[in-house]
Computed example of a mutant assay.
Amino acid sequence: MRNPLDPAALDAAIEDVHRAGVPGLFAEVRDGEEVWRGAAGVADVATGRPVTADMRHRVGSVTKTFVAAAVLRLVEGGRIALDAPIGRYLPELVPGARGEAITVRMLINHTSGLAEFLPYAYPSLKGMPVVADTGPQSLEDHRFTRFDPVELIGMGVAAPAVGTPGGAPGVYSNTNYLLLARLLEEVTGTEAERHITREVIERAGLRDTTFPTGPHIEGPHSRLYEAWFGMIDPPRDHSVCDMSYAGPAASLISTVADLNRFYRLLLAGEIVSPSSLARMRRVGPVISQDGRPIDYGLGLHPMEGAEPGAFWGHGGTVWGGGTLAMIRADGERQMAVAVNLQRWNRIDSSGRPTPHPVDDALARFHRLALYG
C-alpha cells in the first residue's frame, strides 16, 4: 500500500534531529514523482548561516557504490574478470600467494581479509575498533597531509590479516577499495577518479557530484563538525581537509538530490546491467567499521531497520560529516540525508559509545521518510 509523503511531518521530524544535537542536516525524500526536500539547523555554528537542501556534501563511503559500478561495467565489457585474482592485475601491490587467493569480487564485498589502513595512517586511531583506546589528535595532524595511495595500500596489506580470503564474515576495509581504484587505473590507463566520473557520474547525469581537487568543498556547503566521541569539545570544523586519506574509496562530494538520482538509475538497470545489479545484491556477512554485523553485496547492501531486502543503499562518514542513501527495491521510495556532525556519542565506563538523543531522532526520521 502506498504511503504518500507528509511534508509537515517530515519538516517536524528533521527539525527534531537538529534539536537533538545535530547542528545542521538536510535531506531529499521521494515517492514516485512526489519529492520533499528539507533542511534544519545551521551550516556554521559561529555565524548562524542556515543549511539548505541543495548543499554539496562529502558523502564518504557512499562513494563505494560508484566504484563498484565502474568495476562492474568493465566486467561487462570483458576487461576485468570478477573472480580473477588481484595478483594477476596488481602483483606488486598484493604479491605472492595472497595476491593469487584474493579475487576482485572479494575486494568489492570486503571478504579479502585485508586490514583497514586508517589506524596505521592515523597513529592516534591505533586502538580501533575500541573507541576508548583512540584519540583525535591525528585528525588535526594530518588535516593537510597528502597521502600516497600506494603507501596506504601497503599499510593495509602489511598489517595482520583480519580474515582468510573469501572467508565469512568479511571485515569492512577501505584498503579493498583503494586497490579497486588502482585496478581501474591499471586496466583503463586513466586516473580512477576520471574514469568513474566519465563512466558513472556523467552517465547518470549528476551535475553536482565530483571528486575533490583540493582540501576545500567547491560550491554551497556546510562546515563539518567532528566530536570524536566527546573527545573534541566543542566539535571542530573539518570541512577543509585533504581527502587523499580516503581517495576514491570515500572522497566523493555530492548532493542529496544527485544521490537519489544515482541510486534510482542504478536500481533501474541504467548504470550497470540487470545481471550486474543482481550480483551487487547478492550479500554475505561482513563486520562493519563500528563492529556490527551487516550483510554486504558488491558496493551495495540491504539497509538496517528495513524489511529484509526491502531497501538498498550505502552510508558514509568523513571527519565531521555523515550521509545515508536508501532506495526501496522497486525504486519508488527513497531517501538521502546528510548531517554535519559525526561521532556525537560519548564513551561509557566500559569504553563503549553511549546512546544519544540524536540516534533516536534520526531513526524516527528514517522511518517516516521510508514508510510514511
Rank of each mutant, 00 (worst) to 15 (best):
D258P: 06
A268Q: 15
G305F: 10
S276E: 01
T317D: 09
V283I: 15
D237R: 07
S244P: 01
D295S: 14
L266V: 12
H314R: 10
P293E: 14
N260G: 15
S251V: 08
G284A: 13
S273T: 12
Y296G: 04
G284R: 14
C241F: 13
F311E: 08
Y296H: 10
H238S: 13
G309K: 06
M280R: 08
P234E: 06
Y296L: 13
S251M: 10
S244H: 05
R292Y: 09
P302C: 13
H238R: 10
G309I: 06
M303Y: 04
A257V: 11
P293K: 15
R261E: 09
L267T: 02
V283L: 09
R281P: 00
S244D: 08
A246N: 11
A249D: 06
R292C: 06
A306R: 05
G291H: 11
A246E: 12
R264V: 10
G269D: 03
A310Q: 02
V318K: 00
P248I: 07
P308G: 09
P248F: 03
V318D: 09
A246H: 04
D290M: 15
Y245S: 13
G291I: 11
E270V: 04
V318Y: 05
H314N: 11
F262T: 03
V272A: 04
A306S: 10
L252I: 12
F311I: 10
P285H: 12
I253F: 00
L265I: 12
V286K: 02
S275N: 00
G269R: 01
G247C: 06
G313R: 04
V256E: 02
G305V: 12
A246S: 15
G297A: 02
V318R: 00
M280W: 00
S276Y: 00
H301L: 15
R279Y: 00
P302N: 07
S273W: 04
D233F: 11
A257S: 15
S244N: 10
W312I: 15
E304A: 13
G305Y: 11
G247M: 01
I253D: 08
D242G: 09
L265S: 09
G309N: 01
Q289W: 10
G247V: 01
R282N: 06
G309W: 00
I294N: 03
I253S: 09
T255A: 09
Y263L: 14
S244V: 08
Y296Q: 10
A257C: 09
D237H: 06
I294W: 05
V286Y: 02
I253Q: 07
A249S: 15
G315H: 08
G315N: 14
L259R: 03
D237Y: 03
E270F: 04
R292N: 13
L277K: 05
T255R: 02
G284I: 14
R264P: 07
G284S: 13
M243N: 02
G297K: 03
D233C: 12
T255N: 07
M280S: 05
G316W: 07
A257P: 05
M303Q: 13
